[in-house]
Design a binder for these strands. Structure first.
Lengths: 119, 119
DNA sequence: CTAAAACTTGACACTGATGTCAGGGTCAAG
DNA sequence: CTTGACCCTGACATCAGTGTCAAGTTTTAG
């Protein structure tokens, strides 16, 4: 699979795929001419990366959490802490989002009421 | 209340407060020397602004949603749509965050298991 | 009155993921 | 071999909120 196909398959631009690689999130084999080739599982990897990005994790964090390279054993204990930390961050963010949703929902309600009063 | 006090009261930097004003989110009275003065309700307003910002609304959106100026009547019908739109956006974001949380929680679990197996 | 603390505007820097452009190389079909 | 589609690297642009610095003014305390 070349970069254009992976891009089409995942919705990530070629630019982004190269960036993910530059950041150590994604790897590729290079053909004779220096072009990138991807194995099929790359598709799911990219999708996971995008999910985590969309949830506000930075590429640096994703790099830590999804070790591309195989030195997993070394940092495993630290990884656990990191994961827990991120989990807490995400849950905190969810709580904030809930607050905002309630505020917005309140505004919507208030509007609906005044709209009704108008009749 | 001057800008330093409002800053201390809300945790927003003076720089940010000026920026909010520049963006039409916050208003102030100017004294003789041109310095900003705020009425007490400004504190809550700033807190609301920060909540919405933290939830990912842009200043432009906040400006629409919290009309500073009193032309509320004119855009009310449009405002309802805007609010609903933002509400949907926030709910979608929450769903994404839930997915991420589950992924992270899954990773944490997996780690915990392999940690246990190690003993 | 004077010095320090607080304020003013304006400008530039940063972050992080992505877009976009330039100039050049590679690959596959005719 | 040639052409057009695809790919390469490198660089600069973007957005939005905030930090920070500079040079100057205002307020407040002594």
């Amino acid at each position: 699979m070349r970069i254009g196909e992976l891009s089409a398959a995942t919705g990530a631009s070629a630019r982004s795929l190269r960036y993910y690689e530059e950041q150590g999130l994604l790897s590729s084999e290079r053909g004779t001419g220096g072009q990138r080739h991807y194995a099929p599982p790359a598709t799911e990897r990219v999708e996971l990366i995008r999910t985590l990005l969309a949830a506000g994790l930075s590429t640096a964090t994703i790099r830590d959490v999804l070790p591309c390279v195989a030195d997993e054993a070394i940092r495993t204990p630290w990884l656990a802490a990191r994961l827990g930390e991120e989990l807490r961050r995400v849950e905190k963010q969810m709580a904030e989002l809930r607050r905002t949703r309630d505020i917005l929902a309140g505004l919507v309600d208030r509007y609906a009421v005044s709209e009704q009063e108008r009749r």
